[in-house]
Design a protein around this nucleic acid. Structure first.
Lengths: 234, 234
DNA sequence: GCAAAAGTGTTTTGCTTACACCCATGA
DNA sequence: TCATGGGTGTAAGCAAAACACTTTTGC
C-alpha cells in the first residue's frame, strides 16, 4: 500500500479528581524512569489485547490507587496522538476523567507508593508542570468536569454516600474556583428535581447547627441547571 | 513483558452533518468491499505515520467529499476500541463531528462517487443501519451537536457566509427535531451578545417580507444560552 | 387583496440574585 | 452568650413562553 496506516500503542491516562481540605486535587505519580523521570504525571497504562478502553481505565485506576472504578464516576474525555507527544514512539493517549470522594490518602496498590494528591489551581495550570502533554490533558479533563457540574449531578460523585448541602457547595466552589452564596445555593440545589433527596438524618459540624443529610437522587440531568456565575457578560 | 500492550491501527470516522431541504442529513458512503460490503457507513480512513488526528480528519474530509476541513467546523467526539468492533482486527476509531453548509451535492473527489447525503431522524437512529459500530458513533456525534447548539454558535456553521434568522431557526429545528416559535427565536438570537451581527443587506424569500442578513459574530459561548425546550420537567 | 414570512409588543410565569433574618449547636 | 454554619423569606430583575399584531414582499 502506498500509504500504510500507522501503528499505535494506546495508553489510558487518568485525571483523577477529588476535594481535599476544600481544595480541588488531582492524583499524580512521580515517574520512575525516562522519559520524564522524576517528573509528576497522570497515572495510566497501556491497553492490553482484548481489553476495551473502559476496562483498561478501571484496571489502571485499581492498580494505581486501589479505587474501584466500577463504583466511581469514570468517563472518557478525548484522545491525543500528536506525532512526538511520547518520545518512545507512536503512543496515542485516551484521557479519562475520574471523580473520587475525599480519600484518606492514595490507597495501597501496585504503584501507590509513588502516588500523591496535589492541589490544582488555575495558577498552577498556567505553567508547565506535568510530563508528556499531561498539562493539556488535565486542563481538558478539568474543563469537562467544570462544565458537567452545571447540567449533571456529577458533583455528588465527589461526596460520600451521604452529604450535606454545605459539602456539595464546597465541591462547586473548589471546582469552579468561585464563592457561592450559601443561602441561594441551598434553595437552588434542593429545588432541582431528583438532584438530592433527604435521608432524614442530620450531621453536626464542629460548630453550628446540624445539617440535614442527603443522598444522590436519580436525575441524570439537572433542570434548572446550576449555571456558573461569571460565564455571562461583564 | 507479561502484559504486552495491544497494537492498534487508528481510523478516523467522520460524522459530517448538514441541512438539506430543512432536514438534518449525514454524509454516508457505500462500502465497496468486505467487511460490510454494500452497507452504508461513515466516511473515514486510517491515520498515517507522522499525522496528527486532526490532520487525518482534514485529509479524509477532503478526499471523500472535496470539502476543505480547514474552513469547516471539525471537532473530535470520542474514541471507540471495543474488541471485535472491526472484524479485520485491532482498529480503534476516533470519531469526528463535522458541520457543513448546505452543499449542492457531495463534491468530486477520490471516493466521492460512493458518497451521498442521507436524512437523519430519531426514527432511523433507533434501528440498525450503518456498518461497524457507526450507529453508535453517529448517535454520539449527533448528541454532541445537539448539546453544542445550546451554548455555542455552532449553528452558524450549518449556514453560509451570511444567513437570515429564519435559516438559523431551521438549523435548530432540524437538529433538535422540534418546532420553535419564530418570534421568540428572533428576539432571543438577536439578543445574544456576539452571536449574529447584521450585515445591512436583505434577502427576499419566494414569498414574504425580505429578511435581514446576518453573519456570525465573535462570541465563542452564548449568553444567555439557547436552551432546548422539553429538557425540563413535564 | 391575499398568502406568507419577517419582525415588534405585551403579559405571565419562573429562575437568579442580593440580602435580611431566624435556627440550632458547641464552647 | 457568642460565634458559626444551617436554613427560610422577600423583593428586584432578567429571561422564556405564549400569543396578538404590524410590516413588507410576490402573485
Amino acid at each position: 500500500m502506498r500509504n500504510p496506516p500507522a501503528v499505535f500503542s494506546i495508553a489510558i491516562d487518568l485525571a483523577i479528581l477529588t476535594i481535599r481540605d476544600d481544595r480541588l486535587a488531582v492524583l499524580l505519580i512521580e515517574r520512575g524512569k525516562p522519559p520524564f523521570a522524576g517528573r509528576p504525571a497522570l497515572p495510566g497504562g497501556f491497553v492490553r489485547p482484548g481489553e476495551d478502553l473502559d476496562d483498561t481505565a478501571v484496571r489502571e485506576l485499581s492498580e494505581e490507587t486501589g479505587l474501584d472504578g466500577r463504583t466511581l464516576h469514570l468517563e472518557q474525555v478525548r484522545t491525543y496522538a500528536a506525532p512526538g507527544r511520547d518520545p518512545r514512539g507512536a503512543v496515542a493517549s485516551v484521557a479519562y476523567l475520574a471523580i473520587a470522594p475525599d480519600l484518606p490518602v492514595p490507597v495501597a496498590g501496585t504503584d501507590a507508593a509513588r502516588a500523591r494528591w496535589e492541589p490544582v489551581d488555575d495558577d498552577r495550570l498556567g505553567r508547565p508542570w506535568l510530563a508528556f502533554d499531561h498539562d493539556t490533558i488535565l486542563a481538558d479533563a478539568l474543563e469537562r468536569a467544570r462544565a458537567k457540574l452545571e447540567y449533571s449531578p456529577l458533583a455528588t460523585a465527589f461526596c460520600g454516600e451521604t452529604f450535606t448541602i454545605g459539602e456539595l457547595r464546597a465541591v462547586y466552589e473548589a471546582v469552579w474556583q468561585v464563592r457561592l452564596d450559601p443561602r441561594n445555593f441551598h434553595r437552588k440545589v434542593t429545588g432541582v428535581d431528583g438532584f438530592v433527596v433527604p435521608t432524614g438524618e442530620r450531621r453536626s459540624p464542629p460548630t453550628g447547627r446540624p445539617a440535614a443529610l442527603y443522598r444522590r437522587g436519580d436525575a441524570s440531568m439537572l433542570y434548572p441547571a446550576m449555571l456558573r456565575p461569571g460565564t455571562g457578560r461583564p
